[in-house]
Design a protein around this nucleic acid. Structure first.
Lengths: 227, 227
DNA sequence: AACTTACCAATTGTCGACAATTTATATGTG
DNA sequence: CACATATAAATTGTCGACAATTGGTAAGTT
């Protein structure tokens, strides 16, 4: 399976490696959300100089995982309910656009691959009940392929390289509850059909709705924490 | 008048200054589009070390004005017709969203200010025929205020700090032709009315259409160059 | 005890130098 | 002469050290 949203760009330089490593740690939560980042400490930990670490921090800032203040320093982004809403409003709009474009621009074999992915997804889901990892990766791959199907390089970059890391962070750290899985499957199916019929308007609407449902799901976690 | 999209964040550090200076030069074209950037050369020119310059280059990359390749270097973005389409598809989607949100979230006095701006715009336009600078700034300010009126911090950052510099670059270097001015005024007026009536759906649609018209206008320039 | 001020430690910003990589030039071979 | 190879120059990536700024601590005043 393609590894979605884990950046297919080759890791050539040392700061690339630090960037990828830190990104993973932040998304997965082993570097805690909202925590302050000490440049000397992390530079030592990754075995690089501060210059290299700062290069990585800049890249992390570009994908919204850390926030910087001049002469003060860096903090890991905090996962708040407010930010979730803001980010998902943007995501819904952009991925709706991607889906509409995909309905026009996806190649037949790409659509075919998408269908195969969904079948595979279905089988995996049946066999491994409760095991959420594969479902997670499968869902990401689904979105990933549609975004790429838009053939809009700017949009692809914006979603895959910049925004999706933060979305993954919410999903990984807040988690997804169970009953959503089968519903998501049906929604994915409907979206594929719309794309196959080149019905961009419908595809966009279905994708937006699908993402809204996903948002509501995560929102639940915040509501539970607040009570 | 508020200076839209020229970043209200205070300039504290040296790399801030270089970033702002270079940004202006790139947007205005005095650093040519598509040209290679030599770090040693520019560092000397701005009187800073390469580390400081590279910090600025990272920020410029975040707002899509330069592109980087590992071990190769930096190039100023090239203004192509394809990219224009891609960027404006994204802009239309996001600013449509902003406009819809603004219809719900703008304070009455903000709407009032928007109307005043439009009146001011009208007068300026009558007095200074052909003088496109004020019209340009006025139009940017108009969009700027609506985006801020969305009250979505992530969206505001995305549009004002990241995307709009590239859009300004197209506008400044490709230019806007004449007859569009008065039409744009009418379109602005219709958008304000929709916002005032809290008709988000209509406001979004009008904004998208307004931006499409703007795109078509710039597209004309490319078509002229191609013949 | 509360508040201000001065100092100190720690952190970030910036610099110049070195190492690694790429690009251009020159040399050699079919 | 075209092409591949090797060498050299230039550029980017990385490092360690110093300067500037910030946040906290302690001393001092009312």
């Amino acid at each position: 399976m393609t590894q979605p949203f884990l950046n297919d760009t080759p890791i050539t330089t040392a700061s690339d490696q630090v960037f990828v490593d830190m990104r993973r740690e932040i998304v997965e939560g082993s570097i805690e959300q909202g925590s302050k980042i000490s440049e000397p400490e992390l530079a030592k930990r990754y075995g690089v100089s501060r210059a290299t670490l700062r290069e990585a921090l800049n890249r992390l800032e570009s994908c919204y995982l850390v926030e910087r203040k001049a002469n003060v320093g860096c903090r890991v982004v905090a996962l708040t309910a407010e930010r979730l809403i803001e980010v998902y409003q943007v995501r819904s709009s952009l991925e709706g656009l991607a889906c509409r474009l995909a309905a026009d621009n996806m190649e037949p074999e790409e659509v075919k691959g998408l269908k195969q992915l969904l079948n595979q997804h279905l089988q995996t889901q049946r066999v491994k009940e409760g095991e959420s990892y594969y479902q997670e990766a499968g869902d990401l791959d689904f979105h990933y392929r549609i975004i790429k199907g838009s053939k809009n390089a700017h949009l692809i970059h914006l979603l895959c390289n910049e925004l999706y890391q933060l979305i993954r962070m919410y999903r990984v750290q807040m988690g997804m509850v169970g009953p959503r899985v089968s519903k998501a499957f049906d929604e994915h199916l409907a979206i594929i059909n719309a794309i196959e019929n080149h019905d961009g308007e419908l595809a966009e609407m279905l994708m937006k709705r699908h993402i809204s449902a996903s948002q509501a799901n995560i929102q639940t976690k915040f509501d539970l924490l607040a009570k």
